[in-house]
């Protein structure tokens, strides 16, 4: 039930942003559409609604996750542009295995997205039971699990653990 209410609020927010500057006719239609969407697909949306009640999590998300993510994303683009226009194509690819200690679904999704958009790495597959991610790395520096984990995962894992768990 709580998950349906959260989805209703989110859908209504997206509807009123899509009809910017909203007047009352748009808002009435939006209430009906959001009730329909929340009734049909509300159970699939969030597993643990009590997490959303902490205000400190939003604060961590804005102040520590977003600046780190944007800076890594920008570095990734400079790195890829350098590799692409270099005449000898300096790549050294391979698939390595890294460990993670996160458990929640949302945290794993955000970790995989962050790995995909940061320099030189792309998440290929995930093993939920053992907590193992398979990562394609465009410039393999180390091959064993521990040092690869230290190089790829750790800068996001601590932040995401504070936010989502």
């Amino acid at each position: 039930m709580k998950s349906k209410i959260v989805l209703f609020i989110l859908a209504f927010l997206v509807w009123s942003l899509l009809n910017w500057v909203p007047d009352w006719q748009h808002l009435v239609v939006g209430v009906f559409v959001s009730i329909f969407v929340a009734y049909m697909t509300g159970d699939l949306f969030i597993q643990r609604p009590y997490v959303l009640r902490h205000p400190l999590r939003y604060w961590y998300f804005i102040t520590s996750y977003i600046p780190v993510f944007l800076w890594e994303c920008f570095k990734a683009n400079i790195d890829v542009a350098y590799r692409v226009i270099h005449p000898r194509l300096p790549i050294n690819p391979g698939i390595v295995k890294v460990k993670t200690s996160l458990k929640a679904d949302t945290a794993l999704t955000f970790l995989a997205n962050s790995i995909t958009l940061t320099p030189g790495t792309l998440s290929v597959d995930i093993d939920r039971e053992k907590g193992i991610l398979y990562v394609h790395w465009i410039d393999v520096k180390v091959k064993d699990i521990e040092s690869a984990t230290k190089l790829i995962v750790e800068r996001f894992e601590n932040i995401l653990k504070k936010i989502f768990e």
Binding site: A76, V80, P93, L117, G120, L122, V124, I138
Partner: peptide
Amino acid sequence: YNRLQAATKCVTLG
């Protein structure tokens, strides 16, 4: 896989 890396990062941020 290499194409996927370059294309996804650069085109998404662009």
